[in-house]
Amino acid sequence: MLLIEVINAREVVRQRIGKLGARLIGKIVDPDKQVEEALIQEMETAFKEFGIEAKITSVSGAQTIGTGLIELPIQVRNIKEVRHKE
């Protein structure tokens, strides 16, 4: 199982939408959701190329602490199943 925590979502979105749009971050634009959706799309494409079947779950609330601890609870934002067709 892989766990990926994006720690610079605000900066990534700020770079993509510029200074004017940066004012909307947190008000209208959810940077974590935006970056996660882009990552899920990229992972789905790569997984299909390699024939990998997976379930990608986007959650909020979980946070890694150091190297050995994950803080919960979580709220599921989105689940994407990647399957290859035979």
Rank of each mutant, 00 (worst) to 15 (best):
M1G: 11
M1S: 14
L2Y: 09
L2P: 00
I7R: 15
A9P: 00
A9R: 00
A9N: 08
A9M: 05
R10K: 12
R10Q: 04
R10N: 09
V13N: 06
R16E: 08
I17S: 02
K19T: 10
L20A: 13
G21A: 05
A22F: 03
A22D: 01
A22P: 01
I28S: 13
V29Q: 09
V29H: 10
P31N: 14
P31R: 10
D32G: 15
D32W: 06
K33T: 15
Q34Y: 03
Q34I: 06
Q34A: 15
L39G: 09
I40N: 04
I40Y: 06
Q41K: 10
E42Q: 14
E42P: 07
E42Y: 11
E42L: 11
M43G: 08
F47D: 11
K48C: 11
K48M: 04
E49K: 15
F50A: 14
G51I: 02
G51V: 04
I52V: 12
A54M: 01
A54Q: 01
S58M: 12
V59I: 07
V59Y: 07
S60E: 09
A62M: 14
Q63L: 08
I65M: 11
G66E: 02
G66L: 03
L69W: 09
L69V: 13
L69R: 11
I70F: 03
I70P: 00
Q75V: 10
V76T: 11
V76S: 05
R77G: 10
N78L: 06
N78R: 13
I79S: 12
K80C: 03
E81V: 02
E81I: 05
R83C: 06
H84S: 15
H84A: 15
K85Y: 09
K85G: 08
